[in-house]
Amino acid sequence: MPEAAAAAVPALVLAAGGGRRLGGRPKALLPFRGRPLVEHAVRTVRAGGCDPVLVVLGAERERAAAEAELAGCTVVANPDWAEGMGSSLRAGLAALPAGAPAVLVALVDTPGVTPAAVARLLAAHREGAELAAAGYAGRRGHPVLIGARHLAEAAAGATGDAGARALLAAHRAELLLVECGDVAVPDDLDTPADLARWSVS
């Protein structure tokens, strides 16, 4: 096993969005099982084996930091959150601890992602994968794992709402899809109908 692959892999939870299609309700604070949704995302990546956990907050970030239980997390402020997901990815990547062998990027609004899916991506990295994404019946989804040698390129290509899309497209042949459809659900929370389907209360 390569030495770098044996090191702990941090998680980056992107939770800065303002929830425009949800009436301007910040996604980090959406109630999920009685607690802010961002807490669920943090628990998921931790239980899957990531350490440390960085959380990027933007819309109403002071309120989110106060109301959500984020003990042990590094909270990264993204004042440019309205520019789109790319700005949050750049902010999070810039805050990674030096020497991180990779990062697992998770979205706050995918509550169907499970610790088992996270663990599969980390296992793929330990086996040598430098770019990996959860796959659902052969379709790329979240979370995504980015190895250290791709971090600068990921940051450079993170614009608008594209996130890591440019990086993954440029290295399509190298990207490993790790099937997770048997242990996770890729659906995200974007509309009031999505909230109702996930029984968020």
Rank of each mutant, 00 (worst) to 15 (best):
152 A>D: 12
181 G>K: 12
162 A>D: 04
172 R>I: 14
169 A>G: 09
178 V>D: 00
154 A>M: 05
183 V>L: 05
164 A>C: 07
162 A>I: 02
160 G>P: 01
170 A>W: 08
184 A>M: 04
147 G>A: 11
158 A>D: 15
188 D>P: 11
156 A>V: 03
162 A>N: 03
178 V>L: 10
193 A>W: 06
179 E>A: 13
190 D>P: 07
166 A>N: 02
174 E>I: 01
176 L>N: 10
171 H>R: 03
163 G>T: 05
181 G>N: 07
190 D>N: 15
162 A>G: 03
158 A>Q: 12
145 L>R: 02
156 A>L: 01
165 R>Q: 15
180 C>I: 00
183 V>S: 03
192 P>K: 09
153 E>K: 01
180 C>W: 00
174 E>A: 10
155 A>H: 04
159 T>S: 10
166 A>S: 02
166 A>Y: 01
178 V>R: 04
176 L>T: 15
153 E>I: 01
179 E>D: 12
150 H>L: 07
166 A>F: 02
182 D>P: 11
145 L>S: 01
182 D>Y: 08
167 L>K: 00
188 D>N: 12
161 D>L: 04
152 A>C: 05
169 A>R: 14
187 D>M: 13
176 L>A: 15
153 E>W: 00
184 A>D: 05
170 A>R: 13
163 G>Y: 10
154 A>Y: 00
169 A>C: 06
168 L>K: 03
188 D>F: 05
166 A>L: 04
164 A>T: 10
194 D>Y: 15
163 G>Q: 06
163 G>L: 06
164 A>Q: 10
177 L>A: 05
184 A>Q: 06
192 P>I: 10
146 I>G: 04
177 L>T: 07
147 G>S: 10
151 L>C: 05
170 A>I: 12
159 T>E: 14
179 E>F: 13
192 P>M: 12
189 L>W: 09
148 A>C: 07
193 A>N: 11
189 L>K: 08
173 A>S: 14
168 L>Y: 01
192 P>C: 13
152 A>H: 08
173 A>R: 14
164 A>N: 07
165 R>Y: 07
182 D>G: 13
155 A>E: 09
163 G>P: 03
160 G>Q: 08
147 G>F: 05
187 D>N: 15
168 L>E: 03
170 A>T: 14
166 A>W: 00
